[in-house]
Design a protein around this nucleic acid. Structure first.
Lengths: 338, 338
DNA sequence: TAGGAGGCTGTTAGCGCTAATACAAGGGAC
DNA sequence: GTCCCTTGTATTAGCGCTAACAGCCTCCTA
């Protein structure tokens, strides 16, 4: 600790000018003549001066920092989202303060408070639950710029998100078109009321006149590959004559694929598999996996743009929900007709 | 913007006490009687007061924030590292300011300056090059607590890292013991002088009396699965009678595996494959991949502990380099003898 | 009953910076 | 020569907070 800090005062002492003159010179004020500016710049350089952003923030009331709240970064797609957001914010001159909620409501609230206390200019939040958003709505009504990275039309907060409901719908439509009737669903997140993917799944089936069947649903607790593997084992043990399965993440789809490999079930001949997110490992799996694409670049770009608009506006405008329609990437795992 | 801020002054006005008394009461000073404390607490609650951490930092000269610099978070193992670090720092009461250098030297320097300007209490850095560390050594001699997440004994800065040199050595020894003599290497990062894995590879071969053979080396530009795939294609095209290959990351090992699948090369019978990092996707690949384990928990725990020790010490102690010996996880991809 | 000793609270200064204002010197217009 | 305006700089105040010190009671003791 106790590293020596070079302040404006030190430059002032060295050059004989006042602190204020030094401040103005370093900020290229037109009121300071070229010659003075140069002298001061040189002194600053010689002393290896670095402005104290903390002090500046106290005066300017902006920190040029935004807070990013994720549930957990182990989900490969959230990783890519985090990376892309950091990059875009950096381009716009913002630094990213990062924290994870671990899917816990109290943690999420605590993290948001910490960010507020640190006076972040705005927040990007991937909420653990897509339904319980009261604490975030309160944030917004207190005047804080917030953009959610997942959510629904009725969120009451700004949202930029993939339309996963539509994604689920598209994936099931695709499977129906290939002749599948008994389609399984490996979901995740039901505990928190995040039902978008399931909604899409149900709607597509309903349109085709197919009733829901609980024996075709599995709800593992996590999104990991092993969770997908176990869920697949469970579904297969139920003897429900399933011929296709939709997994809520590619990791889980890979787990399901692994199960089929180990148990002599051919993909896609005996079992079609479709995942979500389009991660690299899904594309190059032993059997390349069909998937609902997550448009990382679109989502992050729009989300960051929107957040910065909110920050710059005075008085928050009406909340806006942007849902991006995902594309379906069809690969070998769901090829061919039944 | 322009959200209204509740300050100590507002609580003071409301309760009739002075700002100082309010400050003391909220910090549970023993000099403030219970009754006063309660009144003030209630007022604070009623006004929804949140301390301004920025102002506090200006006075206390600590921000309780550390800067984490990564090259890029798309490498799955760095993701896990980032997550684990954030978690451990949060436990210790620190927030994580996050930035990526994208493997660019100027970016790395710029990011470090931004962190300094924001008065972070310390930094954890995954440097793009394990050799060009002058700018980081300068940081240290200026009194900044820094811990590198990869590095060598002669770094001159604190390091907590996996011993990847030892990892490369162990992996090759393992292949040699299985009877392999023509062992390929798919590396990455040579451009920046990160030769640890290659060093270990070379040493193990030398000890076995096997000369280096340039036709067995491939150096893709990135760490991605496709990079591994392409490198494998290149190595196989060289007709170098290779029977085993060591890839610098599991992603690349998966890419190599994918190539063998598509070209009728049996693993491990015709080709053994060993990777680095032990990511979940390697464990559950079509052929489970042997790998050099990355002890995420050990590394991040020790790194964070060391950093906080440095922050608490007055006057930085001698730099300390901790290299953690990695374990080798043998799976199907390198099973059986030749 | 004077003189402390504590208990409680207020006042002042300062963290490093910016913004608003003040001021001194020089130059032109009349 | 006075007045005013411009140019360059210094002074002051204040961001929200903490730390050091100052002061005023009340109560106890000799």
């Amino acid at each position: 600790m106790a590293r020596p800090i070079v302040r404006l005062k030190d430059i002032a002492d060295r050059t004989g000018f006042s602190v204020n003159t030094v401040s103005l010179a370093l900020r290229d004020s037109p009121r300071i003549p070229e010659e003075t500016r140069l002298m001061i710049r040189q002194a600053a350089e010689a002393l290896n001066y670095l402005p104290n952003h903390i002090a500046k923030s106290l005066v300017s009331r902006e920190t040029r920092t935004i807070g990013l709240v994720l549930t957990s970064i182990t989900n490969p797609i959230l990783t890519r989202v985090a990376q892309a957001i950091e990059l875009r914010l950096a381009e716009r001159g913002y630094l990213t303060l990062f924290a994870t909620s671990n899917g816990d409501h109290q943690e999420e609230k605590k993290v948001i408070e910490m960010f507020r206390s640190r006076q972040v200019d705005g927040m990007l939040i991937y909420p653990r639950s897509h339904r319980e958003l009261d604490h975030i709505r309160r944030l917004r009504s207190a005047g804080y710029p917030v953009v959610l990275l997942v959510g629904d039309n009725d969120a009451g907060v700004d949202v930029v998100s993939m339309d996963t409901r539509q994604g689920g719908y598209k994936a099931v439509r695709h499977l129906l078109e290939r002749g599948h009737r008994r389609i399984g669903l490996i979901d995740g997140g039901q505990q928190r009321g995040n039902l978008e993917k399931q909604d899409g799944y149900v709607r597509a089936l309903a349109e085709a006149g197919i009733a829901e069947d609980a024996t075709l649903h599995a709800v593992p607790g996590t999104h990991s590959l092993m969770a997908g593997y176990d869920a697949m084992a469970e579904l297969m043990a139920r003897n429900n004559s399933m011929t296709a399965v939709l997994a809520a993440t590619d990791s889980m789809a890979l787990g399901a694929l692994r199960w089929t490999q180990q148990h002599g079930v051919r993909v896609p001949e005996d079992m079609a598999i479709v995942g979500f997110d389009n991660i690299e490992f899904a594309e190059h799996a032993a059997t390349p996996i069909s998937t609902v694409d997550y448009a990382v670049d679109r989502v992050t770009e729009l989300a960051v743009d929107r957040l910065i608009d909110l920050i710059r506006a005075d008085g928050l405008p009406e909340a806006e929900v942007t849902l991006i329609e995902p594309g379906l990437v069809v690969r070998e795992s769901s090829a061919g007709r039944r």
